[in-house]
């Protein structure tokens, strides 16, 4: 590991610790409360929220990295590509159709529907775009809009009382779940992240032209489809728990590359750390900024992310990423 990579990972770790501290300490003043209610607020509300924010942020950061790599395009991420929209629709329809059952059954069922729906969206869009990245990204944005509308229509038809809830879900929020739910998400991130680090040398080769990577011995098609499936699974899991939080998957890999350079052995863990930290900060910031409404955190990440996306787009046109 180079010095730069070590420094980058340390920064990521510090950011995560700071993010956790913010999420646990910021919020209503607990000074006048009894010991018992203080513990209830911290362990019953803030810890699960912090776990959910960290899990979703890490999942989205890693998912964005895997998509940008697989498509060799720095503007890709699960949100922009319609995967998040597809997942959100799958997840919401499962929720609306299954109703209020036992969470232990409903949540995995929703995640599964989200994954299937996200994969379907991705493969249809890829087939339709036939290698044209602009078409893919445009298709993704349109798919997101369509899915959001479809989710609202479904909610209106099945259970009108839930429309507000669906709207919050489509914006992206940090829930206060039982601890096992975000733990499941974090386990998912840990397993897929470990796979990506293990395969990092092969992932590096995906940046080359397919023929070159193949000639160097990489099983290009297989690794790319696995990376995309992993990216979709991470997005589906994050969306199921926290709704459609935008732009984290887009921005985090750029920050990670700027900090650590280009090797995926570092980019993978760093994207997880930074993604988790960013969503923790955004969540704490949302609480601090407007504690009286608790605006869904996705509203803030999108406000921040949209101009950043434009900036990246302009920059990508100026300095082409590849040499021929």
């Amino acid at each position: 590991m180079t010095r730069r990579e070590a420094v980058a990972l340390s920064i990521g770790l510090l950011a995560l610790i700071a993010g956790i501290a913010c999420a646990l300490l910021l919020g209503a003043d607990l000074g006048g409360l009894s010991e018992a209610s203080r513990a209830r607020i911290i362990f019953g509300l803030r810890v699960p929220e912090a776990l959910a924010a960290a899990g979703a942020g890490a999942a989205l950061g890693l998912s964005g990295l895997l998509f940008q790599l697989s498509l060799r395009n720095n503007l890709a991420d699960p949100y922009v590509m319609g995967v998040a929209g597809g997942s959100a629709f799958g997840s919401v329809s499962a929720l609306l159709i299954l109703g209020d059952g036992a969470a232990a059954v409903i949540l995995p069922a929703r995640a599964l529907c989200a994954f299937v729906s996200g994969m379907a969206t991705l493969s249809i869009l890829r087939r339709a775009a036939r290698g044209r990245v602009v078409a893919l990204l445009l298709g993704g944005v349109i798919a997101n809009t369509a899915f959001a509308a479809a989710a609202r229509v479904l909610a209106a038809l099945l259970s009108p009382g839930q429309i507000a809830q669906v709207t919050v879900f489509l914006l992206g929020y940090v829930p206060t779940p039982p601890v096992w739910e975000p733990s499941l998400l974090l386990a998912c991130v840990a397993i897929l992240g470990a796979w990506a680090v293990y395969k990092s040398r092969t992932l590096d080769l995906l940046l080359l032209a397919d023929d070159e990577a193949l000639a160097l011995g990489a099983d290009v098609d297989r690794v790319r489809s696995r990376a995309m499936a992993a990216g979709t699974l991470l997005a589906a899991a994050a969306v199921t728990l926290c709704g459609m939080i935008g732009f984290i998957g887009l921005l985090i890999p750029h920050a990670a590359r700027a900090l650590s350079g280009h090797r995926h052995r570092t980019l993978v863990p760093l994207s997880c750390l930074l993604g988790a930290a960013l969503l923790l900060f955004a969540h704490s910031g949302a609480k601090a900024l407007a504690p009286w409404v608790l605006l869904p955190v996705g509203a803030y990440t999108s406000l921040l992310g949209a101009p950043a996306f434009l900036w990246l787009m302009v920059r990508a046109n100026k300095a082409s990423m590849t040499v021929e």
Binding site: R72, L207, L208, A209, E212, G261, A319, M321, V323, E324
Partner: peptide
Amino acid sequence: YVPQNSLLPGDW
């Protein structure tokens, strides 16, 4: 194998 045109990752 050295192809006619190759794609080099610009930041490497």
